[in-house]
Computed example of a mutant assay.
Amino acid sequence: MQDRPSNFTDPATVASYASDTPRKVPGLADLHRMAALLLAEQAPAAAHVLAVGAGGGLELLSLATAQPDWRFTGVDPSPAMLALAHQAVASFAERVELVTGLVDQVTAGPFDGATCLLTLHFLDRGERLRTLREIHRRLKPGARLVVAHHAPPGENAERWMARSVAFGAGARPDRASTAAAGTLMTQRLPLLTPREEEALLRDAGFVDVELFYAAFSFRGWVGSRA
């Protein structure tokens, strides 16, 4: 997910998600490839991977294509977005389980790795920490978590959010409109700074937390369960 959660009940937003998201998130296909590589460094050949915020199915499709021996459990609170995920991974249906709800509704696992992409920026600090702890609790020792979402530098948050909006707008974006959109997103999303994001991952129990992806307002980290 990338837009506000309430938008994922809007038929137009849901219908355009698969085409809009790669346009809005710089290097999305490569982000998925990097996630697969980082997970594979620690995961067994027949890994079982948890995908939190899996609505739309884009990362599941990429990971399932790259790793034909992996199994996946994806969870998302939006039935409409999970319907998209069902369509996206139809050819891998025997390896993908999709669950409607939050991470709490997922089996205790334990899983060999996890992803949470374009999701955590919707959650306030308390809910974000709780979600990360629930993911951590479901991982095997040494298993990795890959996260990526909006996390602009605190002192220039609006400017970086506006740049991300402009990137998604395509050629010759209107600067006034993108600046206004960046300001609105900064006000509406419970954004944390990169330093705060890393501290939250460590508070949730993850170790070896490292930045691996940065693109305008987006950041991505990898960490491991001790």
Rank of each mutant, 00 (worst) to 15 (best):
V52L: 02
F72I: 14
P77V: 09
H48C: 07
M81N: 11
D69R: 12
T100C: 11
L38Q: 01
L102D: 02
H48L: 12
A64F: 09
V49I: 15
S91T: 13
D112M: 01
F122C: 13
F111P: 07
V106N: 03
H86T: 15
F92K: 07
D76P: 11
L37I: 12
R71D: 02
V89M: 12
P110V: 05
P79C: 07
L60C: 08
G53F: 05
L39G: 06
L120D: 15
A40G: 10
L102K: 00
V52F: 01
V89S: 06
H48V: 14
L118Q: 04
V75N: 08
A43I: 10
A40Q: 09
D69A: 13
A66P: 02
D104H: 04
T73P: 11
A114F: 02
A108G: 08
H86I: 14
R95W: 09
L118I: 14
G109C: 10
Q87N: 11
A93D: 03
S62F: 13
L63V: 12
D104C: 02
T107Q: 02
F72L: 10
G53D: 05
A83G: 14
C116R: 01
R71H: 12
L98N: 00
R33H: 12
L39D: 12
Q87M: 06
A40Y: 01
H121E: 12
V96G: 05
P77W: 04
G109T: 14
A93V: 06
G113V: 09
A36S: 12
T119H: 07
A80K: 09
A43F: 03
A36L: 03
P68V: 09
A85V: 14
H48D: 06
A45C: 04
A83F: 08
D69V: 06
D69Y: 05
